[in-house]
C-alpha cells in the first residue's frame, strides 16, 4: 500500500497563455498516488480537475513541474508515453462519444492492439475486459451504437480496461446516467479495486458519488489542491466546501441535523450504510 505509484510535482498549467483570456488551470499542484488506493478527485466545474487528469497520461504538458510514474519522469523527451497510457488508463467524460468500431469486441480490442498485442491476444484481453464491466455475451458482436447509454459507457470503460492499466482514472463516469446506472457503475468500479487491486482515481463534482467508495479525497478549487485527506476529515469542513460550490454528502447533513435536534449520533458516518447503523444505534 505504501509504494508510490505516481508523483505529481508542483504542476503549473495555464490555458491561452499570453492572451487576454489567460487563466491558470493548475496552480502548484502536488500529490502522490499509492498502489491500491481509491482516490476521489472533487471540484466544482472549472476547478482544474479534468486538466489535472489529462496531465496524468501526458496528454497535456505542464508549464512547469513534472510527473513521475514509478520513478520515471513522464515528460522526459524519450519516455514512452504510449506505454504509459496503457498503464495509466484514462476514461474521458462521456466516453461513449469516442466509439467507432463495428462490433463491441473490435472496439474494445483497439486499445490492446495499439499496445502492441497481436489480434488473438488483443481479443482475449477485450473479452476479459467486457466480462469485467459486466456486459452480456450477446453484446460482443453487436454494434456499439445499438447499445443503451449505460451499456455504451461500459464498453468505453472496457476499452480502457482491456489495456490492463495499473491505475484507472475516470473523469465523471456517472454523468448523465440514471440513479440505477450510477449505482451499478460505482459498484463495478469498487469491485475492480477490491478484486484486482487496481488503483482508482474517480473524478466527480458530487460528494455523494465518492463518499461511498473512496478512501481518500482530494478537493480542488481554482486550480489548487485545498484538501487531501480521508473522507471523514474532508467532510468536517462543510462550510468551506459549500463556499467552493461543493457540499458534504447528504448523509452528513442528516446526521448533523439529528445531532442538533438532541439525538446523540456520530456525525462522521458518511456512507449510507454507516449512517443507517448510526441512527439505529442512537434510537435503540
Amino acid at each position: 500500500m505504501n509504494e508510490y505509484k505516481l508523483i505529481a510535482d508542483h504542476l503549473i498549467y495555464e490555458y491561452n497563455k499570453g492572451s487576454a483570456q489567460a487563466r491558470k488551470a493548475l496552480d502548484d499542484v502536488s500529490f502522490v498516488l499509492r498502489g491500491g488506493e481509491f482516490v476521489g478527485l472533487i471540484g466544482h466545474t472549472g476547478s482544474g480537475k479534468s486538466t489535472l487528469v489529462q496531465h496524468l497520461v501526458a496528454l497535456l504538458k505542464p508549464d512547469s513541474g513534472t510527473i513521475y510514474y514509478e520513478g520515471a519522469d513522464i515528460f522526459e523527451k524519450d519516455y514512452n508515453r504510449k506505454a504509459l497510457r496503457g498503464k495509466v488508463g484514462l476514461v474521458f467524460q462521456y466516453p461513449e462519444y469516442q466509439l467507432f468500431e463495428e462490433t463491441v469486441l473490435s472496439e474494445v480490442s483497439y486499445g490492446p492492439k495499439n499496445m502492441g498485442m497481436d489480434k488473438k491476444d488483443a481479443e482475449l484481453a477485450a473479452y476479459a475486459a467486457i466480462k469485467r464491466v459486466g456486459l452480456e455475451d450477446e453484446c460482443f458482436d453487436q454494434s456499439p451504437f445499438d447499445l443503451s447509454g449505460g451499456q455504451k459507457r461500459r464498453v468505453a470503460i472496457a476499452s480502457v480496461l482491456a489495456m490492463n492499466p495499473e491505475i484507472l482514472v475516470l473523469d465523471e463516469p456517472t454523468a448523465g446516467l440514471d440513479p440505477a446506472g450510477r449505482t451499478e457503475l460505482l459498484d463495478m468500479i469498487t469491485e475492480l479495486k477490491e478484486t484486482e487491486g487496481i488503483t482508482i482515481v474517480l473524478v466527480s463534482h458530487s460528494m455523494d458519488d465518492v463518499a461511498e467508495v473512496a478512501n481518500r479525497i482530494i478537493v480542488m478549487d481554482k486550480g489548487k489542491i485545498v484538501y487531501d485527506a480521508e473522507p471523514v476529515e474532508v467532510f468536517r469542513h462543510t462550510a468551506e466546501l459549500e463556499a467552493m460550490g461543493l457540499a458534504a454528502p447528504q448523509m452528513s447533513y442528516v446526521l448533523r441535523d439529528l445531532k442538533a435536534a438532541g439525538i446523540d449520533v456520530n456525525v462522521d458516518a458518511i456512507t449510507l450504510k454507516a449512517a443507517k447503523e448510526e441512527i439505529l444505534r442512537a434510537l435503540a
Binding site: 504510449k82 469516442q98 483497439y110 489495456m163
Partner: peptide, 26 residues
C-alpha cells in the same frame, strides 16, 4: 476525441502516409 483515442494508445504521428491516414479513422 483525439485526446481520448490517444489515451487508448492511438498514434497519429508515426508511420507512412497510409498508416497515418488510417489512424485518423477512430
Amino acid at each position: 476525441i483525439m485526446k481520448a483515442q490517444l489515451a487508448r494508445g492511438a498514434d497519429f504521428e508515426s508511420g507512412n502516409l497510409i498508416k497515418k491516414t488510417k489512424s485518423l479513422v477512430p
